Amino acid sequence: MRARASARSSLVPNLLLLLAIVVLLFPFVWMIMMSLKSQVQNTAAVPVWVFTPTWENYRNVIERNNFLQYTRNSMIVALAATVIGMVLGLPAAYSIARFKQRGLSLWILISRIIPYITFLLPLFLMFTKLRLVGSFTALIVSHLIITLPLIVWITIAFFEDIPTDLEEAALVDGSSRAGAFVRIILPLVTPGVVTAGILAMIFSWNQFLFSLILGGPDTKTVPVAVFNFLSYGSQDYGAIAAAAVLITLPIILLSLTVQKYIVKGLTAEGVKG
């Protein structure tokens, strides 16, 4: 009787979980299906569920639209913005955590909340004066507005959990504070660092506004490239879906590769103590 009651009590949560998974995955599955259909099938009045897959949309995207170059541009910008954000953000988060700089952390949170469009006009005017509009420098610096506050805010809590006794012991043994930070503290907060880095890269990879205004023909990123598939006359839905799949695939593969660090990082605060 208890087993039946337990099964019945877990039935509703399991059904709700299954429903949530279906709702979340359906748009992505539909996008993949559209990328494998012809334009006639994608524009049919009645959705076509049974069809012969075609790779023509992927060939058109890769061969005719320099999509590999756009992917390379996005990778350069996202990686550079994330790495620079790490170099600047991790010491800042450590300082905030160790010296209880709550005011500074509040300002970082505010900069994270402010809409990105607020920074767009000042950045555009500044880079125009410096003749950097359309360069990787402009894109990377602008994307630091996305990655740097995110990295700092996520890693503060991880640095706060590290006992100060470890640093004091290292200082007594003759290590500098910088040496203790690099050799002792950073290895202990690896899950938080990986989590912050992956999330920062995802946000940078998906950024559209800065790339549209501050980028150029040689630095065009994949979100802007997908936007360019849209026109007033007609839309090639298959090509748009194929491009969207190609944009999403690198991030999914990267997340699956380091998923254990992401899960450990995101749940660390929940199991603390």
Rank of each mutant, 00 (worst) to 15 (best):
M1C: 06
R2L: 14
R2I: 14
R4F: 12
S6I: 14
A7K: 11
R8S: 11
N14T: 12
L15M: 12
L16V: 14
L17C: 11
L17K: 07
A20R: 02
I21C: 09
V23E: 02
L24D: 02
P27A: 08
V29T: 09
V29A: 15
M31T: 12
M31E: 05
I32R: 01
M34K: 08
S35C: 03
K37I: 11
V46T: 12
V48Y: 03
V50T: 12
F51I: 06
F51G: 05
F51Y: 14
T52K: 11
P53G: 05
E56V: 10
R59G: 15
R59Q: 15
N60C: 04
V61N: 01
V61T: 05
I62N: 08
E63V: 15
R64C: 02
R64Y: 14
N65E: 13
N66P: 02
N66L: 12
Y70T: 13
Y70W: 13
Y70G: 06
T71D: 00
R72E: 11
S74I: 00
A78P: 04
P91T: 10
A92W: 06
R102N: 15
S105N: 11
W107R: 01
I108R: 07
L109S: 06
S111V: 13
I117G: 05
T118G: 01
L120Y: 00
P122M: 08
P122V: 06
L123E: 07
L123M: 13
F124M: 09
F124P: 01
F124K: 05
M126F: 13
F127A: 02
F127E: 03
L130R: 01
L132A: 13
L132Y: 00
G134H: 05
S135K: 02
L144W: 09
I146C: 09
T147I: 09
I151E: 04
I154C: 07
T155Q: 02
A157L: 07
A157E: 13
A157N: 06
E160Q: 13
D161I: 01
I162V: 15
P163M: 06
D165L: 08
E167S: 05
E168M: 11
A169V: 08
V172N: 10
S175M: 15
S176V: 10
R177P: 05
G179R: 14
G179E: 10
R183V: 05
I185D: 03
L186E: 04
L186M: 10
L186T: 09
L188R: 12
L188K: 10
P191Y: 11
G192D: 05
A196T: 08
F203C: 10
F203A: 12
S204C: 08
Q207I: 07
F208Q: 00
L212D: 02
I213D: 02
I213H: 01
I213F: 15
L214M: 06
L214H: 01
G216C: 06
P217T: 14
K220R: 15
V222I: 15
V222T: 14
P223R: 05
F227G: 14
F227K: 02
Y232L: 15
Y232I: 13
G233C: 01
S234C: 01
D236Q: 14
Y237A: 03
Y237C: 03
G238C: 03
A243Y: 04
P250Y: 11
L253G: 12
S255P: 04
S255D: 00
L256D: 01
T257Y: 15
K260L: 00
I262H: 07
I262Q: 04
V271T: 11
